[in-house]
Computed example of a mutant assay.
Amino acid sequence: MTNELVLVRHATCARMDEMLLGRTVDAPLAEIGLREAEAMAHALDPHHETLIVVSPRRRAQQTASAIAARCQGELLTSAAIDELDFGHWSGQTFSELAHDPAWRRWNEQRNLAATPAGERISDVQARVLDHLQRLCQAFPGRPMVLVTHAEVIRAALLHWLQAPVAAYRRLAISPASMSRVSLSDWGPCVDSINLRAPL
């Protein structure tokens, strides 16, 4: 049995280029983000049986709502695909974070470092992959769209590509991007990474 998955990064939201939003700054989609979400919904053209699983963050919820409206699909909120827990880094500007040695270490040694909340990329991989396994068992053969965050998508793709966490810079996961993966009894097949719908 094969589950076709589309991993969607939420569309562009307010202040995302200047600030680490994390879990504490629940920014809405920017005007361009609303257009991106609509464009993705049309590009995906999901079937009414598509299960849409979404992070609790507002930016992901708004993106998922546009997709769900396209097909009247079932929408399921899941903390298992929530944003990485950045602890007190959340809400700080990138210029402020640049002076923090722990932030620099996080970006230079992602395979070894943890956020102030104690979460590591290996933790993210574990929670996401475990959740996906349970979803595929609960909904065998059902197509799914997961609307989540860059680090969550990147962590899962690195695992499926058998690449080390330290290689995270090699994978671009843009706002409003789509990555397609097939999960079957024979293992994962990554079909495409970081595709964007034209506006």
Rank of each mutant, 00 (worst) to 15 (best):
S122I: 10
R59W: 03
C136D: 11
L75F: 02
L29F: 07
A39G: 02
P101N: 10
A60R: 00
E49P: 01
S182C: 12
V181H: 04
I32A: 13
L44E: 00
E108T: 15
S192W: 11
M40S: 04
R180K: 10
V147S: 00
L51A: 04
A156Q: 03
V190K: 04
A167W: 15
V190D: 06
R170L: 15
G87N: 05
G73H: 02
V145P: 02
R120K: 15
H48G: 08
A114P: 12
R23I: 09
V124F: 10
L34G: 06
L97V: 12
E83C: 06
P198L: 05
H48R: 13
L21W: 09
V54Y: 05
H42M: 10
L76I: 04
M19T: 15
R105N: 15
E4A: 14
A37W: 02
A64Y: 02
T24G: 05
E18L: 11
A14T: 13
G87T: 04
A163M: 15
I193L: 02
A14K: 13
R15C: 08
D45W: 08
P164D: 12
S182D: 12
I193W: 01
R58T: 11
I153Y: 01
V152H: 01
P175M: 01
N107L: 15
N111E: 15
G33N: 01
A68D: 04
P140V: 04
C71P: 03
Q137H: 10
A156E: 03
R70Y: 05
D17Y: 13
Q125V: 10
H159V: 14
L135T: 05
L21E: 06
R59E: 01
L97I: 11
A66H: 06
F139Y: 14
L157M: 07
A14Y: 11
I67K: 00
V8L: 07
N111W: 15
V128G: 01
R104T: 15
E83M: 05
R58L: 13
P116M: 11
V53K: 01
N194K: 02
H48L: 07
A102P: 09
R23W: 09
W186G: 14
R154F: 07
A167P: 13
L84M: 13
I67R: 00
A176F: 06
N194R: 00
T63Y: 01
G73Q: 02
R170D: 14
L29G: 03
M40V: 02
T2M: 14
